[in-house]
Lab assay of single mutants.
Amino acid sequence: TETAWISLVTALHLVLGLNAVLGLLLLRWQF
């Protein structure tokens, strides 16, 4: 079960990281 939790947490971190990068790019394009 630990491996499943680790994979789930890493997936969440990757998604949050991608969202942060996309958000910064969108803000930079708007201004």
Rank of each mutant, 00 (worst) to 15 (best):
I6M: 07
L12P: 01
L16Q: 10
G23D: 05
T10E: 00
A20G: 08
G17T: 11
L12S: 01
L16E: 06
V9R: 07
Q30Y: 15
L8N: 01
G17W: 08
T3Q: 07
A4C: 01
S7W: 13
A4Y: 06
A11E: 04
W29L: 15
T10Q: 02
L8P: 04
L24N: 01
V21F: 12
L22P: 06
L26T: 08
E2H: 10
L25M: 13
L26I: 13
R28F: 03
A20S: 06
L8Y: 08
L16C: 14
V21P: 05
L16I: 14
T3A: 13
L12Y: 02
A20F: 12
H13W: 14
A20Y: 08
Q30W: 13
L8I: 07
A11D: 10
L14Y: 10
T10D: 02
L24P: 10
L18H: 10
N19C: 02
T1I: 13
L26N: 07
I6K: 05
G23P: 02
T10W: 05
L26C: 07
H13D: 08
T3L: 10
T10N: 11
L18N: 04
L12W: 10
L12M: 08
A4N: 01
L14M: 07
W29T: 14
G23R: 10
S7N: 06
R28L: 10
L8K: 05
L18S: 07
L26F: 09
L22G: 05
E2G: 07
S7L: 14
V9E: 09
A20D: 10
L24M: 12
L16H: 00
L18T: 05
V21N: 06
F31Y: 13
R28T: 08
Q30R: 15
A11C: 11
V9L: 12
F31I: 12
L16N: 04
R28M: 13
W29Y: 15
L22F: 11
G17Y: 03
A4R: 02
V15F: 11
L14T: 07
L22I: 07
A11Y: 01
I6L: 10
S7H: 04
H13V: 15
E2N: 02
V9D: 08
G23K: 06
L26G: 06
G23F: 15
Q30P: 00
S7V: 14
Q30E: 06
L14A: 07
A4H: 07
A20N: 01
A20K: 06
L27R: 02
A20I: 14
V21C: 09
A11L: 11
V21A: 11
L12I: 11
S7A: 15
W5A: 02
L8C: 06
L27Q: 00
N19K: 11
N19V: 00
L16W: 08
N19Y: 03
W5P: 01
N19S: 09
V9W: 07
L14I: 13
G23H: 00
L22D: 06
Q30C: 09
L26D: 04
A11K: 05
L14S: 04
A11V: 11
Q30L: 12
I6D: 02
A11Q: 00
L22W: 11
T3M: 09
L25T: 10
T10H: 01
